[in-house]
Computed example of a mutant assay.
Amino acid sequence: MAITYSTKKDFSSQELEGLFLSVEWSSGHFPDKLVVAMRNFSTVFSAWDGDKLAGMICAMDDGIMNAYVHYLLVNPAYHGRKIGRTLVEKMKERYADFTRIAVIAYNNELSFYENCGFSKADDASPMFITSLWT
Score class of each variant (00 low, 15 high):
Val88Gln: 03
Glu89Ser: 05
Glu89Ile: 07
Lys90Asp: 00
Lys90Asn: 02
Lys90Met: 12
Lys90Ser: 00
Met91Lys: 01
Met91Gln: 03
Lys92Phe: 03
Lys92Ile: 07
Glu93Asp: 07
Glu93Thr: 05
Arg94Asn: 01
Arg94Val: 01
Tyr95Ser: 01
Tyr95Gly: 00
Ala96Asn: 05
Ala96Gln: 12
Ala96Phe: 12
Ala96Ser: 11
Asp97Leu: 11
Asp97His: 11
Phe98Ile: 02
Phe98Pro: 00
Phe98Thr: 00
Phe98Arg: 02
Thr99Gln: 13
Thr99Trp: 14
Thr99Leu: 15
Arg100Val: 11
Arg100Ser: 13
Arg100Cys: 14
Arg100Leu: 15
Ile101Cys: 05
Ala102Glu: 13
Val103Met: 08
Val103Gln: 04
Ile104Met: 04
Ile104His: 10
Ala105Thr: 10
Ala105Lys: 02
Ala105Gln: 02
Tyr106Val: 11
Asn107Lys: 15
Asn108Asp: 15
Asn108Val: 14
Asn108Trp: 15
Asn108Gly: 07
Asn108Ile: 14
Glu109Trp: 04
Glu109Ser: 15
Glu109Arg: 12
Glu109Tyr: 07
Glu109Asn: 08
Glu109Cys: 10
Leu110Met: 12
Ser111Phe: 13
Ser111Trp: 05
Ser111Leu: 13
Ser111Arg: 08
Phe112Glu: 05
Phe112Trp: 04
Phe112Asn: 04
Phe112Thr: 09
Tyr113Thr: 09
Tyr113Arg: 04
Glu114Val: 14
Asn115His: 11
Asn115Ala: 12
Asn115Arg: 09
Asn115Trp: 06
Asn115Lys: 11
Cys116Pro: 04
Cys116Val: 06
Cys116Ser: 06
Cys116Ala: 06
Cys116Met: 09
Cys116His: 03
Gly117Phe: 11
Gly117Ser: 06
Gly117Arg: 06
Gly117Thr: 10
